[in-house]
């Protein structure tokens, strides 16, 4: 810590009609936390750079034309923030309904809680395409099931300059069909992956899962687990 002689500047704003005072640089997400007005978040994680992807954290700031991502926007003096008005709730609910219609969220407990909180219609988008991918079981440490990937980017970011500087992961395609991939979709062992496991640690869904956990779920015997997670063995689905 630097020897800070200057007092930290503080910011006073209104969140849901309550006055809040926070140090300069505090995001709206953190400021709202101080008065126990939890703002939902999916992509945000303390260990990764916030990119404003999921937009379920959006709030109404000064009644502006656009809703603002609370995970990124720093508080400013005099701001008037509404964290749960009709615009905000309608947007959040629609995002959650669309997400649920595209991705297998069964093993994402935090997202499930949100879906319940927002009482979403789980069948809102009949006949819509889901993002489905084959399970990738190509290394002894973890399996990848991108049908459960909600594209929070955390794995790509920890693999790159948020933590590991390994750069094994990227995105393939774009738009709805964006998916997490290695270079030319090679198996993990052929990529630059060093199997640090950081991506598995930050994944909010069942998309990245330790092999042992996967084996236990699938009723593997200890022998099978040992066999399938031994270093150097590669299996394809």
């Amino acid at each position: 810590m630097e020897n800070n002689t200057e007092p930290v500047k503080t910011i006073t704003l209104t969140i849901d009609d309550l006055p809040v005072t926070v140090p300069e640089g505090t995001t709206i997400l953190d400021a709202a936390q101080t008065i126990d007005h939890a703002i939902p978040a999916i992509c945000y994680h303390d260990a990764t750079t916030a990119n404003g992807l999921c937009r379920v954290c959006v709030v109404d700031v000064n009644g502006g034309r656009l809703l603002q991502p609370a995970c990124i926007l720093p508080c400013q003096d005099g701001m008037v923030v509404q964290t749960r008005n009709e615009r905000v709730e309608r947007s959040r609910r629609t995002i959650l309904e669309m997400l649920n219609s595209a991705v297998d969220l069964a093993q994402a407990p935090t997202v499930q809680t949100l879906l319940d909180d927002y009482q979403i219609d789980r069948g809102r988008f009949p006949g819509s395409e889901r993002r489905e991918h084959v399970l990738l079981d190509d290394n002894p440490f973890y399996v990848r099931d991108y049908s459960q990937c909600l594209l929070c980017w955390r794995c790509v970011q920890v693999c790159a300059d948020d933590a590991q500087y390994t750069f094994a992961l990227t995105w393939g395609d774009r738009g709805f069909h964006t998916h997490i991939s290695t270079a030319f979709q090679v198996d993990m062992p052929e990529s630059s992956c060093v199997f640090c496991g950081q991506c598995v640690g930050v994944c909010p869904t069942g998309a990245l899962k330790p092999k042992i956990e996967f084996g236990l779920e699938h009723g593997w015997s200890l022998e099978q687990i040992r066999e399938n997670t031994r270093r150097g063995r590669k299996r394809k689905p």
Partner: peptide, 25 residues
């Protein structure tokens, strides 16, 4: 729009696809 969405943020990445699907029918 579904073809050109970059896929970064959820509202557009998912919304352009769902909007297209509904208009297709």
């Amino acid at each position: 729009f579904a073809h050109e969405s970059c896929g970064k943020c959820f509202p557009c990445q998912l919304g352009t696809q769902r909007q297209m699907e509904i208009l297709e029918r």
